[in-house]
Computed example of a mutant assay.
Amino acid sequence: MSRSMRMSVEVEGLDEALRRLKAYDTKSTEKISEAIRLGGQNIGKEARSRVPRRSGKLRKSIRTRFDSTAITSTVRTNVPYAHLVEFGAAAATVRPRSRARKGGKPKLALRIDGRGFRRFVHKSSKPGKGVVHIPARPARPYMTPAYQSGKPRIENDIKKVLREMPK
């Protein structure tokens, strides 16, 4: 299952400005579109530079996309664990089911050792055997700080275009 993280920039008065843009030339619309497109690209670059590197998969998965019809820029990742890196995760305990499967094989619990190798372990009569404790992982935000650092520049670029527009 793939999850994606999305953040958006909301500029106050943008609806009114877009209404005014329709009355004026397309040059202003292009300038605002360019400011939003470049802002999205800058946020994507910033997020890639801030993401913690373990394998590099999360960093490589960060993509930006600009939609010229809606004048929106999207920065996203489709790696299923991206939200766990951004927001952290609480500690958990995984236990195999006590009942056996229909084929007679007992349920297994996934255990990941210190080197990252995955293996399945059986539940046994010994207490704690087969139980896997997953420690809490602290939040290591990369997308939110990138968004917060890029947002003022996008807003300023749009305000600059709006000030230059004919009244």
Rank of each mutant, 00 (worst) to 15 (best):
M1C: 02
S2N: 05
R3Q: 08
V9A: 04
V11E: 06
L14R: 00
E16P: 04
E16K: 07
L18T: 08
R20F: 05
L21Q: 07
K22N: 06
D25T: 13
T29Q: 10
T29D: 03
I32L: 14
S33N: 09
E34N: 13
I36W: 03
R37G: 03
R37C: 07
L38T: 06
G40I: 02
I43V: 14
G44V: 09
R48E: 01
S49F: 04
R50C: 00
V51R: 04
P52F: 00
R54Q: 07
G56I: 02
K57Y: 09
R59G: 06
S61R: 01
T69H: 12
I71L: 13
S73K: 02
R76Y: 12
R76T: 11
R76W: 08
T77V: 00
V79Q: 02
Y81D: 03
A82R: 02
F87R: 05
G88L: 01
G88P: 02
T93M: 10
P96Y: 08
S98P: 11
R99I: 11
L110E: 13
L110W: 11
R111D: 14
R115V: 10
G116D: 11
G116W: 12
H122M: 14
G130L: 12
V131S: 10
P135E: 12
A136V: 07
P138K: 09
P138A: 09
Y142F: 15
T144K: 13
Y147E: 08
I154D: 02
I154V: 15
E155M: 09
N156H: 10
D157F: 03
I158G: 03
K159A: 11
K160M: 12
V161S: 08
L162W: 11
K167M: 12
